[in-house]
């Protein structure tokens, strides 16, 4: 309940405040959002599995975001930023799909 409310509050805050994205954050924010999504879906799956742990969730969320940002940064420095971003997105996308499949099995039993 509180988690859903928190998500709602975050979305509303973003809609109301309409903040400018700082220029140094521009390349990292999209990847960070996708990485956080991956962590959230993983947490939801763990919750449905009955093995949810808030500490694990927080750590996985933060580390996902950080590692995604580091990979993008490193890619930019190495001159393969675009390709590496694509790779990260692909990997995270695959994980999100598999997590969502597990969630679906839990919720719809199908």
């Amino acid at each position: 309940m509180i988690a859903a409310v928190g998500l709602l509050i975050g979305v509303l805050l973003g809609l109301i405040l309409q903040p400018e994205v700082p220029i140094w954050l521009e390349p990292y924010l999209p990847i960070a959002v996708v990485a956080a999504l991956d962590a959230v879906f993983g947490a939801l799956r763990a919750f449905l599995d009955g093995i949810f742990d808030d500490k694990v969730f927080v750590v996985s969320f933060v580390s996902n975001v950080l590692i995604a940002a580091i990979i993008v940064y490193l890619g930019d420095k190495l001159g393969v930023g675009g390709q590496l971003s694509t790779g990260v997105i692909v990997v995270l996308g695959i994980r999100i799909f598999s997590n969502v499949a597990a969630i679906r099995r839990h919720i719809f039993h199908a």
């Binding site: 988690a3 928190g6 709602l8 975050g10 979305v11 309409q18 959002v33 956080a36 999504l37 808030d54």
Partner: peptide, 21 residues
């Protein structure tokens, strides 16, 4: 646990909306 998740989800929602905008 839900409260921690709520905080992180709020951050995620905020960041996602910001990025979309």
């Amino acid at each position: 646990g839900q409260a921690a998740a709520a905080v992180l989800l709020a951050i995620l929602g905020f960041a996602a909306v910001t990025q979309v905008k």
